[in-house]
Amino acid sequence: MLVSSAVVVSVGLLLGAIGLGAFIWAFWVGAFESLDEQARCILDERDLRMRRPWETPGQARERRRLYGGPLEPGPGEWGGALGRGGR
């Protein structure tokens, strides 16, 4: 049992150490600052301005207010042709 315990524990500790090292490094380089900006970094102007057909009138108004006049989505914009007849 000694060998497997040693391996499992040491590799578990290694994984933990890697995680801890990465965490400290991330903290050091400021990866936990500007979280709101980080959350938005995957969205570009088109993502934000595009009209979403599922949004309520209130949600659509809020989108227009925040990001300006809406852009129309293209066919298959949401990852497939479902809007063209498939349900």
């Binding site: 599922w54 949401w78 990852g79 497939g80 479902l82 809007g83």
Partner: peptide, 10 residues
């Protein structure tokens, strides 16, 4: 926004 599931296969 669960209605989005009707529009987006993804």
């Amino acid at each position: 926004r669960f209605a989005s599931l009707r529009y987006s296969p993804t």
